[in-house]
Design a protein around this nucleic acid. Sequence first.
DNA 1: GGAGAATTGTAACGATCGGTACAGGATCAG
DNA 2: CTGATCCTGTACCGATCGTTACAATTCTCC
Lengths: 172, 172
Amino acid sequence: MSNRDDVLEALGEVFRHYGYEGASIARISAATGLGKGSLYHLFPGGKDEMATAVITHIHDWFERAIFSPLRLTGDTDGMWDHVAAYFNRGGRVCLIGAFALADTRDRFATAITRYFTCWIDALALAYRQGGVENAHPMAVNAVLRVQGAIVLSQALGNTQPFETTIADLRLH
Amino acid sequence: MSNRDDVLEALGEVFRHYGYEGASIARISAATGLGKGSLYHLFPGGKDEMATAVITHIHDWFERAIFSPLRLTGDTDGMWDHVAAYFNRGGRVCLIGAFALADTRDRFATAITRYFTCWIDALALAYRQGGVENAHPMAVNAVLRVQGAIVLSQALGNTQPFETTIADLRLH
DNA sequence: GGAGAATTGTAACGATCGGTACAGGATCAG
DNA sequence: CTGATCCTGTACCGATCGTTACAATTCTCC
């Protein structure tokens, strides 16, 4: 595992798949190919710091690929393309959404709130630029439906709920 | 803790709050007031059986309070009342939805799929009885939005997304 | 009351948990 | 080449994990 971004990427997949408690250092070590020594050298704060770093990494990616373009260009269509690709058409879980459901929500509360607030606000701004009324409630609803679509697609083992939700969200 | 239902209720809260991995036997013992001996007497299959029993218990409650009335009377308004109360206006996590996001989804796949399928089908039937077109996609969307509303309400520490979602879903 | 079953608390099991210590390899400037 | 710094594999720490075993207690029914 060469650079820090690759490590954070692999780290994210482990947290995504097993949750915070289920992501043991042994599993993380296996997934990243890094021994405990390297892991604790990179993240002296241990698991807590690893999770914080992953959340920050994800937020940074969204900021660059989604939030910022949304604010600058107001291009919602392009955003849905990126969102659909990122979440692998409902086959990939939203780590931050998953963390919001368990006791991890309290530990990473500010980062979790920030992620969703940024997304909603950026989308609301884009809607407003497009002349949409009630832009903020619409943005809340849109983000909410993406999260629900992921849950349902995972639960049913079927990407259709996600696909039709994204298709529907594109209409506005 | 007197009867089995009370135990399952307390058990559910532990799984809800800490997730499957985070719900240790020690925590479960403390939450239920039952020693390890009693726990393994009630659930010889250990944690796995506890989780299965909780999921079944939840499904049974929904079947009685929500799915069945929905199929028989088609009263969607009454359903939303029960749903809002059960999920404490977004303050209470959907255990089965949460299980669908991590590796627990594979372990309890059939029960998870069954829960959501029952809900969607019952709601679709009610919509159809009410003369709604595209009843099934509408039902999928409604259940999906409830799940998303829970995620977002938890993430923001704010019940408003849940409240407005339920209010909106009542309109159809 | 007393035999038998059902329930319970306690102690212990091996395994694994997150985290630490540290010796030695790799790397690089001088 | 030398010394210092960075990096990493390994062994180990106490604590806790899920589970088992079992003796003691409580309950049930005759």
